[in-house]
Write a protein that binds this DNA or RNA. Structure first.
Lengths: 243, 243
DNA sequence: CGTCGGTTGTGAGGCGCGTCACCTCGCGTT
DNA sequence: AACGCGAGGTGACGCGCCTCACAACCGACG
């Protein structure tokens, strides 16, 4: 099942076969490094180790010391917190070209959440000190990192707002709208109700019922877990309560 | 009513009277600038304009273009989102030495929330381009900014987790624990139930009832809106469900 | 020192949503 | 073709919390 990040990146080769592109070529496609020239990319390339993780394996564990920074090369991962009753919240999901692990790295704090492979994944790993040195000597990367953290902070604030201000159907509508592009109202990524539930803080059953209602109202149509938004305006109205 | 930030800062002079400390002296106390030497501080000092806002006035309005960066000199402000039914979420509260407005400034996006003065406040204002230039030429500030955004992202993720994993009393317990220091289990800042409710996404009444229960169990004691945690362990247990 | 706006306490009622229980369906595996 | 497992659908039930309504209180300010 070929899956892509929401970010532009070149097509991944058939799984199992080593990537056709070199590490540096791949780094050039990573948004965080867009501004870098070839020489700088090569220097980063020298620092990375490639590591692969099978589906469901834990990549970083909460409260570990944060001694590494990761870039997703292939596959997808999720960032989760687990309550002591076992319930999970999905804080983020990352695909090829995305990166994570910068927080612990910047402020030396412990990891704040688990990161788990959703599919078989191969990651590029940088050691903390190497990465930090590079960031300190390259304002371009520091600036790009600021941009990325800004984006995430905005989206976290959106998430908090919807948890407080919206009911479950409203939060689902918002999530659906967040996942379409300008070109298409179909969500390419297949996604399960369970996953949606964990992303918006609801139960699987309630998500199921809401999605049924959305279909009955002809706001969405579902085929093989691929969701198409047929009435974006209606969904937008349902999701409105913020701002 | 004299109120202080949670961050170290010199005592504020009686309100109304112009501050005894010069702008540069004040800047030296701002955590964001801790690493800067006097010369660098002076250069920042030249760029700032001082502006005062009466209580309840709106400092930045959601969806405004973000063309300024703010540092709180005196008073306190809150960052809020408003649902279309009028309900409010408080995303952040800032006091002397804190700063806000960096997001719109980094990524050129629109403001993501309102900022409103909780008390009469005087702020230092930097124009976007000035600030950006200074950050780009001073890695120290860029790094400090990364640290600050990291902190906020962690705390936003904590907030999301508790909204999903904890019930209202649990979220209150967590908020209380977040507001004590290592030295004292008393929350210096007076705070209303209404404010607590808007910070944790609950109704005023439910907060009131939970706080009554906490008092009856001798977990906290309240005197003139100043809260003392008398059984930190019990509260910690009540707040546990994350990690 | 009385009045008034903002804060708190509490009861009653209703409902959104979580939980439990069970069934069906689709799909990959042997 | 039969099996098993993960995903989805749906009813019943209960409860946590929101809402509404009103009373008591407190501090500020004329």
């Amino acid at each position: 099942m070929a899956e892509y990040s929401t970010r532009p990146s070149r097509p991944t080769p058939a799984s199992g076969i080593p990537p056709l592109t070199s590490t540096v070529e791949f780094l050039a496609t990573v948004p965080l490094f867009h501004e870098l020239d070839l020489e700088e990319l090569r220097r980063f390339g020298e620092l990375v180790r490639e590591k692969s993780y099978p589906k469901s394996s834990v990549i970083v564990f909460e409260d570990d010391p944060g001694d590494a920074f990761f870039i997703v090369r292939e596959g997808r991962v999720k960032v989760v917190r687990v309550g002591d009753d076992g319930r999970e919240v999905i804080l983020d999901r990352f695909g090829p070209g995305d990166h994570f692990g910068e927080l612990a790295l910047i402020d030396n704090g412990p990891r704040s959440a688990h990161v788990v492979a959703i599919e078989d994944a191969t990651l590029l790993v940088l050691r903390r000190d190497d990465f930090r040195r590079r960031v300190e000597e390259s304002p371009k990367v520091a600036w790009a990192l600021l941009g990325e953290l800004s984006r995430r902070l905005r989206s976290a604030d959106d998430q908090i707002s919807s948890l407080v201000l919206l009911d479950v159907p409203g939060r689902i509508a918002r999530l659906l709208l967040d996942h379409i592009t300008d070109e298409s109202t179909t969500i390419e990524q297949a996604i399960t109700h369970q996953t949606i539930a964990q992303m918006i803080g609801a139960s699987r059953e309630t998500v199921s019922r809401s999605m049924r209602d959305f279909q009955q109202m002809d706001w969405i149509s579902v085929d093989k877990r691929r969701i198409t938004l047929t009435d974006v305006e209606a969904l937008r109205k349902r999701a409105r309560a913020r701002e």
